[in-house]
């Protein structure tokens, strides 16, 4: 029987505030989102306490309360600027990663995000146009990254989306992407559009 357990509980409550300050410090020095496990390792505490302390940090750094906001992104936690301060940020820094992404780039990102890891021939098959230059551009922007090769000798390189992709698109993870069935207007929509064209045609 351990008689000191109640005392330990009392000591425990106070350092949560202290731990939240440690987490703030870790999140400030990191340039990529940190997972609960990363934070627990660095702070040398268990993950349950990190989650409790993150709740405190999240309340302190939220939209409307601070210029810095704690957000969940790419499977972890990270600080970002408050949306209300976007105009000032835009005058200071550019967002080169997502600047000028073409329709072809968006479609390629969609293919890889939903079906990845996949190869350039896979992308070409779905889009009906060659994907080589688009994929190269997305790799250069660090939105796609190589993820091994197809099995067999000389297998094509596979690609997957990066943590940066999730961050840029404000996704906590790829599971946050909407189901493909929920997207678009489906076969009925296509038929309606064709009928509209037919109606515009003079008899």
């Amino acid at each position: 029987m351990n008689p000191v357990t109640p005392t330990l509980r009392l000591v425990d409550a106070e350092p949560l505030e202290r731990l939240s300050r440690t987490l703030e410090a870790l999140l400030v020095v990191a340039s990529t989102p940190l997972s609960v496990a990363d934070l627990a390792d660095a702070a040398a505490v268990d993950e349950v306490r990190v989650e409790a302390a993150l709740h405190l940090v999240g309340e302190r750094y939220s939209e409307g309360r601070s210029g810095i906001v704690l957000e969940r992104a790419a499977g972890g936690y990270a600080f970002r600027a408050a949306r209300t301060e976007a105009a000032a940020c835009a005058r200071l820094v550019e967002r080169p990663v997502e600047r000028g992404l073409s329709q072809a780039a968006m479609e390629t990102l969609a293919v890889v995000a939903y079906l990845g890891p996949c190869t350039r021939p896979d992308i070409a098959r779905l889009r009906g146009v060659a994907a080589d230059s688009v994929v190269a551009g997305l790799v250069e922007r660090r939105l796609l990254v190589e993820a091994g090769r197809e099995p067999g000798v000389g297998g094509a390189v596979r690609y997957r989306t990066t943590e940066l992709f999730e961050r840029v698109f404000g996704l906590e993870g790829l599971s946050e992407l909407p189901r493909l069935d929920d997207l678009g207007d489906g076969a009925d929509g296509i038929r309606e559009r064709l009928e509209a064209v037919a109606e515009r045609r003079p008899a």
């Binding site: 957000e71 600027a81 949306r83 479609e107 969609a110 995000a113 698109f169 996704l171 493909l180 997207l183």
Partner: peptide
């Protein structure tokens, strides 16, 4: 392809909505 095109347009809208997030 229609689905992928729809997914791409969802991503485009998402990017637009997230354009005020700086990190």
């Amino acid at each position: 392809y229609r689905r992928i095109k729809a997914a791409a347009s969802w991503l485009t809208e998402r990017l637009e909505a997230e354009s005020d997030r700086y990190f």
